[in-house]
Design a protein around this nucleic acid. Structure first.
Length: 736
DNA sequence: GAGTTTGAAACT
DNA sequence: CAGTTTCAAACTC
């Protein structure tokens, strides 16, 4: 598995590859959160570990991930050896993870309602073992925040407490601490570690289990769907051979039938406690940078299923990040999401996961759990803040899942799924014919071979393919204060769109298409051609949406078959800057003189070049026609701007007057309109009149017409003044 | 808004 | 590759 190869990247437009404004943060969480491997000194304690509640860390050495949804936070960070950092909500004041390679262990201070943990151990196989030193408090249900740990050596983890005091549990499979026997420590094969955090809509639960257990437990899932995100990261340093850490985010899609809080199932040791319909098993996206195609060794996996949004309607807010703003969470809005994106901070690419919108409950059940602790069963939903920045736009009736993996520098970025490959826009299984033309894929496309199964990979298309998000609400987390707080939208805005600068592409709303016959699956459709979904278009029988994924994929493939560079921006960026932008193919205009928007060059505001095959071209530097057109266009634009500014100024001046204390010139208990004609208002009015005069002059209107226009404008100004005066009388009848 | 023009895309 | 058809945007009235 690899991200777009350097060779391929080199072929992409410069604006696509521009990364200068993207903050890479991957080193920071490692430094802050994870103990360095081997003999490196103990890293300094980071306030984040003690100040940010509900921390779960699970990151390879150079990775950092941050995730959140709704009001939950969890933080994840591992160093080489994939340390797992667990910090109960405000309970662990100092936590240092220990790996078998470094044998570095510090006893975390667990206070309050949690049993004391003597050690937190993360062997080389990424297992994390919390050993209690004190007997667990009685699970009498009176202490919802109390979590009873299993006997020493048992791998039930307390990840934190929810805001209501309910424990967040991580349950590790029994096999987790047996890497040597079950997975062969030191084996060169990648060894995926999966931590699953599971929540329901209202009552998320966190569990850790192997992949196989996840699948096996799916039968216990009822009346709900789970969307699972796996983030796979291959540690750069590992003494026990390549390992893969998978972070699986399971999102409940079905909100119906949400069980009562008391019925929320507890974490099951070694088992994912989820519910799902057999028809719609949890779906997984694996994000990582490993190229390993070694099938997942499920026996050693741990998974973290992250809950869906707890409160879809919860307003945007920022959580965590005390003091240093280590975490920033934008709580999603709207209905439970069925649009998910995977966004890589530091990358210009948006990776998408398409999921089927469903509704239903996400109640977790024990499903054979060995844990009968009622205190755990009453676990309240919590969120995670991991050292991963993740954004989940919540858009009703949309089907994109956006996730933001950690930023990477040179490391490959991979998005794969182990299930439901059709959920991605372009399954790699359809790519054999495309792969020879890798350069033809949309910029930012990531090819992800199957991870585990080996026969299902995906091509993740760049952000332009993910624009079926009318008003996304994001869950955004940043893992460090240095991480850019730019929203996913801002990141997306960096993407080049057909030669336009990213700011252009995003600031200017795309025109809705009006396709009637092409089903928006041919390049006639601008949306499709730009790699976007149709959104708020006027098209008829549109297939350029997530409801017609298969057709769309076929159409994409067909286009690429016809033209390998069909989805590459037509307007390429020249070597010396924007002035060298030119059409990649050139135009073929015959009648328009290349001075109308029929001409793609003119439309892109670039001049025709030698590669154009146009006839009677007037779109060249010295062309008087072109200069005239450009002058007129500029003048028109300036006029509009001036007029708008003048009117705005006039309005603001009048409004300002209303708020001021004005001379008590009254008549019949109210101000006379002329009392509002102050110097400022007069100036603004003159601006409007002058603007009108200029406009008349530019349009070469006869003097009589110009005078009439000016007088009309003056009349409008007077009416506004009078109107505001009347409003003032109405608004403040006492003082005025 | 309807009709026309235009040129890219698709097709042969 | 060239010619033709299809298509949707741009443009005109």
């Amino acid at each position: 598995m690899d991200v777009v190869s350097p060779e391929l990247n080199s072929l992409l437009p410069d604006e696509i590859m521009d990364t200068e404004a993207i903050t890479m943060e991957e080193e920071l969480p490692v430094e802050h959160l994870a103990a360095p491997p081997q003999s490196e000194p103990e890293p300094p304690q980071v306030p984040m570990e003690t100040e940010v509640p509900e921390i779960v860390s699970l990151c390879p050495a150079t990775t950092s991930m941050q995730m959140s949804s709704a009001s939950t936070d969890a933080q994840c960070s591992t160093s080489s050896g994939t340390q797992l950092l667990l910090a109960p909500s405000g309970l662990i004041t100092s936590t240092t993870m220990t790996t078998t390679t470094s044998a570095k262990t510090t006893g975390p201070a667990v206070t309050q309602n949690l049993p004391k943990i003597s050690s937190v151990t993360v062997p080389a196989n990424h297992q994390l073992i919390i050993n209690k030193v004190a007997s667990a408090p009685a699970a009498d249900g009176k202490s919802p925040g109390t979590a009873v740990l299993k006997p020493e050596g048992q791998k039930l983890l307390v990840a934190g407490l929810s805001k209501t005091g309910q424990p967040i549990m991580l349950a590790l499979p029994h096999t987790w601490n047996k890497p040597a026997t079950t997975q062969g420590t030191g084996d060169a094969k990648a060894q995926p570690t999966q931590i699953k955090m599971l929540t329901t809509v209202g009552k998320p639960v966190i569990a850790v289990s192997s992949a196989s257990q996840l699948m096996g437990s799916s039968s216990t899932l009822q009346a709900q769907q789970l969307k699972t995100l796996q983030i796979t990261k291959k540690p750069t340093v590992s003494t026990a051979g390549p390992m893969i850490t998978k972070l699986i985010i399971t999102k409940a899609l079905n909100n119906k039938g949400l069980s009562s809080p008391a019925s929320v199932a507890p974490v099951v040791t070694g088992r994912v406690v989820t519910q799902s319909t057999p028809v719609t098993p949890p779906r997984t996206i694996t994000i990582g940078e490993t190229v390993s195609t070694v099938p997942q060794n499920t026996s050693g996996n741990s998974k973290v299923a992250i809950s869906p949004l707890k409160s879809p309607s919860k307003p945007v807010q920022t959580v965590g990040g005390v003091g240093t703003s280590q975490f920033k969470t934008i709580i999603p809005l709207g209905t439970p999401p069925n649009v998910q994106q995977i966004q890589v901070p530091g990358s210009r690419f948006h990776y998408v996961r398409l999921v089927t919108a469903t509704t239903g409950s996400t109640t977790a059940q024990s499903g054979g759990s060995t844990n009968t602790n009622p205190s755990i069963q009453q676990a309240k939903p919590v969120m995670m803040n991991a050292a991963v920045r993740m954004s989940v736009p919540i858009v009703p009736a949309q089907n994109i899942k956006q996730v933001v993996p950690k930023p990477l520098t040179s490391a490959a970025q991979v998005v794969t799924t182990s299930q439901t490959p059709q959920r991605l826009i372009m399954p790699a299984t359809h790519l054999p014919q495309i792969q020879p033309n890798l350069t033809s894929l949309p910029p930012g496309t990531v090819l992800a071979p199957a991870h585990g199964s080996g026969n299902m990979g995906y091509a993740v298309l760049p952000a332009p393919y993910v624009t079926q998000i009318p008003q996304p609400a994001f869950v955004t987390l940043t893992s460090s204060s240095t991480f850019s707080t730019a929203t996913p939208i801002q990141t997306q805005a960096r993407l080049s769109l057909n030669g336009l600068s990213t700011s252009e592409a995003t600031s200017r709303p795309r025109k809705p298409c009006n396709c009637t016959r092409s089903q928006c699956l041919k390049l006639y459709c601008d949306c499709f051609a730009n790699g976007e979904f149709c959104n708020n278009c006027n098209c008829v029988n549109c297939f350029n949406n997530l409801d017609h994924e298969s057709e769309r994929l076929k159409a994409i493939k067909a286009c690429l078959d016809r033209n390998p560079v069909a989805f590459k921006p037509k307007i390429g960026k020249g070597k010396q800057g924007e002035s060298d932008r030119r059409h990649s193919k050139g135009c073929n205009c015959k009648k328009s003189g290349c001075l109308k928007n029929y001409c793609e060059c003119y439309e892109a505001k670039i001049m025709c070049s030698s590669i154009c095959k146009c006839m009677g071209c007037k779109n060249f530097e010295e062309s008087p026609e072109r200069k005239t057109l450009m002058h007129l266009a500029d003048a028109a634009e300036v006029r509009v701007q001036q007029q708008t500014a003048a009117k705005t100024k006039l309005s603001s001046q009048i409004s300002d007057l209303l708020t001021r204390t004005t001379p008590a010139v009254t008549s019949g208990g109210g101000k006379l309109p002329y009392t509002f004609v102050t110097k400022e208002v007069a100036e603004a009015t003159c601006d409007c009149l002058l603007e009108q005069a200029e406009q008349a002059e530019l349009t070469t209107q006869p003097q009589a017409v110009a005078e009439r226009l000016i007088l009309e404008e003056f009349g409008r100004c007077l009416r506004r003044i009078i109107s505001f005066a009347g409003k003032a009388k109405t608004d403040c009848p006492i003082n005025c």
